[in-house]
């Protein structure tokens, strides 16, 4: 608990997101969405958190490759693993949301398929990591893999869905994002802080995973 103020902020922001997400005024009358517009405060932050964690993990991969310090590699992989958890939560909540708005759990859509393939890329990262016994070799292989995985990930979940001709998902293909629907700025009042809160939660979880793995590593050395 060296510096813990941001952990308090994480809890406060997410709590605010839960309360505000339900009770604050929101555009509740946009077509098939109805009140599910409020899912914006919970589904989208999952992906924000995943993207931020993966981005920071790339920085740690670079730091490992330039320094050879295994701690950096540990932090990088901890972040990827927690990011995967958030990605799974994003896929699950999105699928559930789709069932009661589009009427189906899954549909062939650039955004959905892109996100699914992106998850597979990081599943491969996980398998690659676990298949190498030697600590240093494992760190080098997975760091380099991580550097290549991230740009492909961004293309798959953001660029490719935007380039698609049609899509059901907001802000991809021919659809608009929620920012254009949020005329009174009511969503933003909750969404930004909620998103920041979830990102901080993700960072917190990653640091816990990192510290646990670090302890394990030290104990194995002795």
């Amino acid at each position: 608990m060296r510096t813990y103020w941001w952990k308090i902020l994480a809890v406060l922001f997410v709590t605010y997101g839960i309360i505000g997400g339900f009770l604050m005024p929101a555009p509740d009358n946009i077509g098939i969405l109805g009140k599910t517009i409020r899912n914006l405060n919970f589904h989208v932050p999952m992906w924000f958190t995943m993207i931020i964690l993966l981005f920071v993990s790339v920085i740690y991969s670079l730091m490992y490759l330039s320094s050879g310090d295994l701690k950096k590699d540990n932090m990088s992989s901890s972040m990827v693993k927690v990011a995967m958890l958030f990605g799974l939560m994003g896929l699950a909540t999105g699928s559930f949301w789709a069932r009661f708005t589009w009427g189906t759990w899954w549909i062939e859509d650039a955004k959905l398929n892109g996100a699914a393939i992106a998850m597979l890329i990081y599943t491969a990262y996980y398998i690659l990591r676990n298949s190498i016994e030697d600590e240093i070799k494992r760190a080098k292989f997975s760091s380099v893999y991580n550097l290549f995985a991230f740009p492909i990930y961004i293309v798959l979940i953001i660029v490719y869905p935007r380039m698609a001709e049609t899509s059901l998902h907001p802000a991809s293909g021919d659809t608009v994002g929620f920012s254009t629907l949020d005329l009174d700025n009511n969503l933003r009042k909750v969404f930004y802080l909620s998103g920041l809160g979830w990102i901080l939660m993700g960072v917190w979880l990653s640091t816990l995973k990192y510290r646990l793995t670090e302890l394990k590593r030290k104990n194995e050395e002795i």
């Binding site: 952990k7 809890v11 997410v14 839960i18 309360i19 339900f22 009770l23 917190w204 816990l208």
Partner: peptide, 27 residues
């Protein structure tokens, strides 16, 4: 609806409290 909000707040508060405990144990 406030009942639902309260339930979620309870769940998240306990989850956060557990995280704090975990954090302290690791420290």
């Amino acid at each position: 609806i406030y009942v639902v909000v309260a339930v979620l707040v309870i769940i998240f508060t306990l989850l956060a409290a557990y995280l704090v405990r975990l954090d302290k144990k690791i420290t």
